[in-house]
């Protein structure tokens, strides 16, 4: 029973219902159904995209937007979060504005960004960065707030320079919080990347998916949905792995 308590320990036999559903779908599904084409049709329907060299560039565009967006969000979130967390007055002064910005649903940013920046890659990035920043910013803020004052006295007694204070004390102390934030932000950033692409049709996997739906290519829609799922799974896996590895390192375990 002990192994089942962690999320990593979810028993694989739990995949049975999903597998059974897919098999049943495959066996009983009508290949020409406009709503529920069986799984074998999905792959057949995605094949033209691969052959027409559409799928790979789309996946690449989505990945690029996602990665750059997440990277920028991490930088902004870590820096602003640390600053806001290190000063109570700054925190109090900024928090209502930050709270309001945070309350804006990502979807509502899309028309704003398209109107101001047009249907461009920058527009996509802006929409991805804003919502993805919050988890990192909040995690950093609370970690910086709860940082022990003793730890901050250490560099002072050792006579370290400001730069060394930042690199040797603050960064390692806040890194776990940043990673925690990234762990939440990464799936969010992927979702929002797809969201922008579905809504604006500016290249990427989301726009291909949206086009497939507009053309009633139901099998292709399911196929692309599966591909986004794989992408989502990959992102989760990488982020969880990285987070675990780093936090183990920080705790001094091999």
């Amino acid at each position: 029973m002990a192994g089942e308590n962690g999320t990593g320990g979810t028993p694989l036999r739990g995949l049975l219902p999903l597998a059974a559903l897919l098999v049943l779908w495959q066996l009983t599904g009508d290949p020409d159904s406009p709503y529920f084409p069986p799984p074998s049709e999905w792959f057949a329907a995605v094949r033209p995209l691969v052959e027409g060299n559409e799928l790979l560039p789309a996946v690449a565009a989505t990945s690029l937007t996602f990665l750059i967006g997440l990277g920028v969000a991490t930088l902004i979130g870590a820096i602003v979060g640390t600053l806001v967390g290190s000063s109570r007055p700054a925190d109090r002064a900024l928090s209502p504005s930050l709270e309001f910005l945070r309350a804006l649903p990502a979807a509502s940013l899309v028309p704003v960004a398209t109107l101001i920046l047009g249907y461009t890659t920058q527009m996509k990035l802006v929409v991805v960065v804003l919502p993805a920043t919050w988890p990192i910013l909040l995690a950093c803020r609370s970690a910086r707030r709860s940082l022990s004052p003793v730890l901050l006295d250490v560099p002072r007694t050792l006579g370290l320079s400001r730069r060394h204070r930042a690199t040797k004390i603050l960064t390692p102390a806040l890194l776990p919080a940043v990673l925690l934030g990234v762990r939440v932000a990464a799936p969010l950033a992927l979702i929002i990347t797809l969201l922008v692409e579905i809504v604006t049709r500016v290249d990427g996997l989301g726009s291909v998916l949206g086009a497939a739906q507009a053309n009633f290519l139901s099998a292709q829609v399911y196929g692309l949905l599966t591909i986004t799922g794989l992408l989502g799974y990959l992102v989760n896996w990488v982020v969880t792995r990285a987070d675990n590895a780093v936090s183990r390192r920080m705790r001094g375990e091999p």
Partner: peptide, 18 residues
């Protein structure tokens, strides 16, 4: 549970076209 976790990996917005 494992089925649910597999389904959860599908980004929810991708369900809008479906």
């Amino acid at each position: 549970m494992a089925s649910l976790e597999a389904l959860r990996a599908l980004p929810i917005v991708a369900f809008v076209p479906v």
